[in-house]
């Protein structure tokens, strides 16, 4: 049976969709069968980031309403044959996403895939709670700033209360993914420190993704950053995060720590 991961944050625009695509493509490159599922009805983005927007025929709401079979709605990635996308509906109303419909789809996906990665919409409303409902583990995407951290804290509370796992009295595995980490701003003290975020949220860290133009470049060519440029800094951080998700233990490096060391040798030029 596949593992269901929800990628969630509370706050909007912190990098959930970017992370869903990047982690999905990273896990698929390990030859595991992966489906990324867009829960952002009406504001879907995942198809764009995956470069599949022109191939969407059916979406999740079509499947829920019986207009299409699940395999008809799944879009296979052109570059990775183990990577699939289940798009959200852009035109239908959010209310068509029913709890029973979602449950049926997730249970079916679990039979065919190793990883089901659910891209949650922002907020704490129905879309977000439906996306987390069936999760086995959660990736909490947070930017190193106060409002994002507080919203993540709120989401962690919901993960421990409103999910099936929580209702069964089991523990939801939660992982922190710190994204858009800007080493220059961290050095100037304009951002929360990694330690402070960890202290506030007190869940294990699976990666720190640097703020980088490579993310934008990748989404412009319609590819997850882990496919577009596997050697770029954000891609490498996502590959490591994916390995940690899969259970490996690897040391985590804070982006820019090297720069601090070089900075000492070369003066301030590096910054």
């Amino acid at each position: 049976m596949g593992k269901v991961i929800v990628v969630t944050s509370g706050k909007g625009g912190v990098g959930k969709t970017t992370s869903t695509a990047a982690l999905g493509a990273a896990l698929a490159q390990r030859n595991e069968k992966v489906v990324v599922v867009d829960f952002d009805v009406g504001l879907r983005n995942l198809d764009l980031v995956m470069g599949a927007e022109r191939r969407v025929v059916y979406d999740m709401v079509n499947v829920i309403q019986g207009d299409a079979k699940l395999p008809q709605a799944l879009i296979r990635d052109k570059r990775l044959e183990t990577l699939f996308l289940l798009p959200a509906s852009q035109t239908r109303d959010k209310d068509h996403l029913t709890a029973e419909g979602v449950e049926r789809i997730i249970n079916e996906l679990k039979k065919y895939f190793d990883w089901i990665i659910c891209d949650s919409p922002a907020g704490i409303e129905r879309g977000a709670t439906l996306a987390m409902r069936h999760a086995d583990m959660a990736v909490v995407v947070t930017n190193p700033e106060v409002s994002s951290v507080r919203d993540s804290d709120r989401i962690i509370g919901l993960l421990d209360a409103k999910t099936l796992k929580a209702e069964r009295g089991e523990r939801m595995e939660k992982h922190l993914l710190l994204t858009r980490y800007d080493a220059n701003r961290a050095e100037r003290g304009d951002m929360l420190k990694v330690d402070d975020v960890l202290e506030i949220l007190s869940i294990p860290l699976i990666g720190i993704i640097p703020e980088s133009m490579d993310v934008l470049k990748a989404s412009n060519v319609g590819a997850p950053v882990t496919l577009a440029d596997a050697r770029s800094a954000p891609a490498m951080a996502y590959f490591d995060a994916a390995r940690r998700l899969a259970g490996e233990t690897l040391p985590i490096t804070i982006p820019g720590d090297k720069r601090g060391f070089l900075g000492k040798i070369f003066g301030r030029k590096a910054a």
């Binding site: 507080r150 804290d153 919901l158 506030i200």
Partner: peptide
């Protein structure tokens, strides 16, 4: 035994409350 998260409230009129963990902003 858990941190009390933003948006959560613990209401215990009967007596003392001990939290082994932090109480978040908004909790």
């Amino acid at each position: 035994h858990e941190p009390v998260r933003s948006g959560q409230s613990v209401i215990f009129p009967e007596g003392d409350v001990t939290v082994v963990g932090s109480v978040a902003s908004g909790a």
